[in-house]
Design a protein around this nucleic acid. Sequence first.
DNA 1: TCTGGGGTCCTAGGACCC
DNA 2: TCTGGGGTCCTAGGACCC
Length: 426
Amino acid sequence: MSFTRYTKKIALVDCNSFYVSCERLFNPKIRKKPVVVLSNNDGCIISRSNEAKALGIKMGEPYFKEKDIIVKNNVQVFSSNYSLYGDMSRRVMRTLKRFNSDIEVYSIDEAFLDLSNFSDDEVEKVGKEIRSTVLQWTGIPTSIGIAKTKTLSKVANHIAKKKQSGVTSLIGIENLDPILEKVEINDVWGVGKQLTKFYHKHGIYNAKQLKNKSNTWIKKSSNVLGSRTAMELRGISCIDLETTTTKRKSCVVSRSFGKRIERFQELKEAVVNYCLNASEKIRSESLVAKAITVFVRTSPFQRNFGYYSNSKTIDFPIATNNSIETSKTALAILESIFKNGYRYQKAGVMLTGLSNSVGEKNLFSNEKDEKINSLMRSIDSTNYRYGRSTLSLASAGVHKKWNMRREYSSKIDTSDFYSIPTIKAT
DNA sequence: TCTGGGGTCCTAGGACCC
DNA sequence: TCTGGGGTCCTAGGACCC
């Protein structure tokens, strides 16, 4: 019989500079060099190596604004390669599941793990073991923060990022105030730009100050989310781990164009393509949509050409995931919101009110629906096998002059057998 | 002069996250 | 010249009902 304590323990595993780390896996020459990865269209900087951060390159900054620093310091630049990152993400998550099969995959590069089964004393050691296993099996470096609540594990993770070992546990520390005092309020999970402004106005600048503010005051002046954050900072868990993947409620496909679009015809092609992708996505998850929204807009940064932004939603008579129907409806919306004389920069399609498609038969379904469904199935399987857009609709176009820029792609394809790193059993 | 009260449901927009 | 994309949740306010 020992006095080992078993409290609630949540670990947040976060991949370091994830996209950069993925590119480095296949390109050892850039291991110690400054590296950045760009968003779609090579627009913004969305991942930076530590070396790039040290040069003062900012997160989310437009690429062209940082170009001088980048060229001068020979920073390696990559367009984003989401199939590579998605694939690496799955490998990391699979590895994490070895330690606890109930993990919450929070984003492409983050997961929460329940480590409550381990004692207070051993939990940090377990964290280190997780970190080294992920590194060994996937090559991706991570940081791990462990604490009694999700919000505190985020705090711990922040600290871990700056440590050599990459692991920080706040379990068993009686008084967290000295630690929370050093966490700026805008770095607290759940506190964004607006709340930061508001808290500053009321003299709250760090996590400790928020923690010690009364619940009623916070609830009254912000909302329930604000007070939940404060409770979590006090070590009272309010945000549960979501280990079962719940079905999503909406599906968005939108892109900025590589070049500005002025002609209706080209906009139409883009919207149909987004619509096909969105419909295919929800079909693959056995979902149907209640409604569809289409939006278009010109650049919010170059208003000298005039700014225009509009969107419209149409409800389907019967929830659907049929590409032909969604495309038709999308085009009808587009026609009603398109205005001549603008340089469009972005468009998108949103399928909303998603629900399970199984047993979606109703009074009005008939043989024709069955035929369409089987047509959709064969399109999906063909596209899966031979690449997306092997089978498409005529209105989706073939030239796609509006397609996004990807000048710096590493062109690594993990479905390419020969570029997959192998792990040798010893 | 003085114009109820309370409930539900839906939507648009804002704020936040990565 | 050039500024990403995809989600969730909450709230306020309107419509509608009794």
